[in-house]
Design a protein around this nucleic acid. Structure first.
Length: 330
DNA sequence: CGACGTTTGAGGCTAAGTAC
DNA sequence: GTACTTAGCCTCAAACGTCG
């Protein structure tokens, strides 16, 4: 795809509308991929990059045109205020947060990708989350979204939106991991084996609906769960643009129930971060990995060496009087 | 047995790697 | 541009191993 075709693509009304609708309130990242390195633009001067109106799409492309950017990403979080760097640091500035599951795979195994997505969607259905769910194809894999407004204002007042979204993604991942691991078996050893990840974090970005993918000439089209059976790779063709604008649909409070249960079990993003386990990846045994092992270890009862560490810390503090160094014993 | 060197295991720390 | 993971090396005293 020549760069003028990229610009032609982003000049379409539908594309501009969908991108700006999604990006409103989110911190945007624009990528200009090249063979040597991946370059991201996240600011205009000192201000966070934003795309709030249709005309902003072409405006930001123009702003960085020298680098030929082609992919739009945006944070899972929607912010109350987005005018300075400080606005990005303040957790209370997060107004909403979209729970997103990242299903990684090879494009050729798209059927398997959709099967993994189905496992997630079925789990959500069981919890009564139906209308606010949509899928978005992203390059070689896909993203499963819950609309960020599927939570009641009352719930959002009680909990940080990121705590809610992180917990739900993690909660559902735990309940679907057996199915996903089973599916992943057949892609074991592949370059990009099937895996579903919880990538939710404070500033994480995900592909924006109708953005072009960075390395393939594919558009990040959206579709609803009831269309999955008809899915075809041809939908991803930027010229075809088989995209469903109903990703904007949601039902307020629909996801409250699962949110409460998830929060009770997971405890939220900020707590997970405090104990050093944020990202979970579910895939083939090789990727079953240290993170879950680490968690299992942490979850066990206090071990002999933890007691020894505490003893060492206490002794060090008594002898040397240096509390900070003593804390290094854990 | 007792002196001394080596191994052990945890978290801390950092640089490099990764993904979007 | 950002935040995470990973790998490797750091810390310590106790436990363990070796040797006279």
């Amino acid at each position: 795809m020549e760069y003028n075709e990229v610009l032609d693509y982003y000049s379409r009304e539908l594309v501009k509308k969908e991108i700006s609708d999604y990006c409103k309130g989110r911190w945007v990242a624009l990528e200009a991929p090249s063979e040597e390195k991946r370059t991201f633009f996240r600011y205009i001067g000192k201000k966070p990059l934003k795309v709030e109106e249709e005309r902003d799409v072409e405006a930001v492309l123009k702003r960085f045109k020298f680098f030929k950017p082609r992919t739009f990403y945006a944070t899972a979080n929607v912010y109350k205020k987005l005018d300075s760097k400080e606005d990005l640091e303040e957790p209370d500035n997060i107004a909403l947060s979209s729970p997103i599951w990242d299903v990684d795979n090879e494009l050729e195994r798209w059927k398997q990708t959709l099967e993994a997505a189905t496992a997630i969607i079925e789990e959500l259905e069981r919890a009564g989350v139906v209308k606010s769910v949509f899928l978005k194809w992203s390059g070689r894999g896909c993203h499963v979204h819950i609309h960020e407004k599927a939570f009641s204002p009352e719930l959002l007042k009680e909990h940080n939106p990121l705590d809610i979204s992180y917990s739900i993604v993690e909660y559902v991942l735990r309940r679907t991991q057996d199915k996903i691991k089973e599916l992943a078996k057949s892609s074991e050893g592949a370059k990009r084996p099937l895996a579903v990840e919880n990538d939710m974090d404070l500033k994480r970005v995900f592909t924006v609906p109708l953005s072009l993918y960075r390395s393939l000439d594919l558009a990040a089209i959206c579709f609803k769960p009831d269309e999955m059976d008809d899915f075809s790779v041809s939908w991803l063709d930027p010229h075809e643009l088989r995209h469903n604008i109903r990703w904007k649909e949601y039902e307020i409070g629909e996801a409250d129930d699962i949110a409460k249960r998830a929060l009770a079990e997971i405890g939220g993003y900020f707590k997970a971060k405090a104990v050093g386990m944020v990202r979970t990846r579910v895939g083939v045994p090789a990727t079953k990995d240290k993170r879950s092992e680490r968690f299992e270890r942490k979850a066990r009862k206090l071990g002999r060496f933890q007691v020894m560490g505490l003893l060492q810390a206490a002794r060090y503090y008594v002898l040397k009087g240096n509390l900070e160094k003593a804390k290094s014993f854990g």
